[in-house]
């Protein structure tokens, strides 16, 4: 007999305060006013493959179902096309909330192992961080080696095609003043941004 999963949720399944925490991040505040109309899912081109629809993700966040949300594939399927964000009748910046959730999932290491999207994100981050620029073909190579090296073999044709057309860089692109960028990042690491809520706006918007 197939194994049955418990689907009822008890209050103890909630990570109380999670929703509040997400909604306090700049850009995520509007989630409070979500009316669960489903416009986000209706316009999302990737919703075809999502395990929870974007609307459901929004409700899970608001209701503190942290584990369910961070394990969801939906946040990784978001391709940042911003269709949901511009169409939401409550002006909720759904794409930005997805980014926030991705960051939290990576930070807590709860994303599915060998799932290529977070791996790409991390590799991209590492490469940009270390070299200042990204060399796409090497990025893809690293990603495939870390997730599914068999798939990398399947990509040989594309790689060869790019090479033939002069679109494959053998060398790593990078900036000259790598130390400068590293120092900047170090500075950021030393600031606790969550403690900066009291910083007052410095100037009015330009427009």
């Amino acid at each position: 007999m197939a194994e049955l999963l418990r689907t009822i949720k008890y209050e103890s399944d909630r990570v109380k305060g999670f929703g509040r925490e997400v909604m306090s991040v700049p850009g995520c505040e509007q989630l409070e006013s979500c009316i669960q109309c489903g416009t986000c899912s209706g316009v999302c081109p990737l919703s075809i493959y999502m395990d929870s629809t974007p609307r459901q993700v929004m409700e899970l966040v608001r209701s503190d179902f942290k584990n369910e949300v961070l394990h969801s594939r939906t946040i990784w399927l978001c391709a940042s096309c911003y269709a949901c964000t511009v169409e939401c009748p409550r002006q909720i910046r759904i794409t930005d909330i997805m980014y926030e959730l991705k960051q939290r999932a990576i930070h807590e290491g709860v994303y599915p192992k060998k799932f290529p999207i977070p791996v790409l994100a991390k590799e991209f981050h590492k490469m940009a961080h270390n070299h200042g620029r990204v060399t796409e073909n090497w990025l893809a190579t690293w990603m495939f080696l870390k997730t599914n090296w068999l798939a990398a073999i399947g990509m040989w044709k594309l790689g060869l095609g790019l090479f033939m057309r002069g679109r494959f860089s053998l060398k790593y692109e990078g900036i000259k003043r790598k130390g400068e960028l590293a120092r900047m990042m170090e500075t950021v690491d030393n600031i606790d941004i969550d403690k900066l809520t009291d910083v007052k706006p410095k100037r009015k918007p330009a427009h």
């Binding site: 669960q36 109309c37 489903g38 899912s41 919703s47 629809t53 609307r55």
Partner: peptide, 9 residues
């Protein structure tokens, strides 16, 4: 459209 009650797009 998302059929929000059925949970399908």
């Amino acid at each position: 459209v998302e059929d929000t009650l059925a949970g399908y797009v």
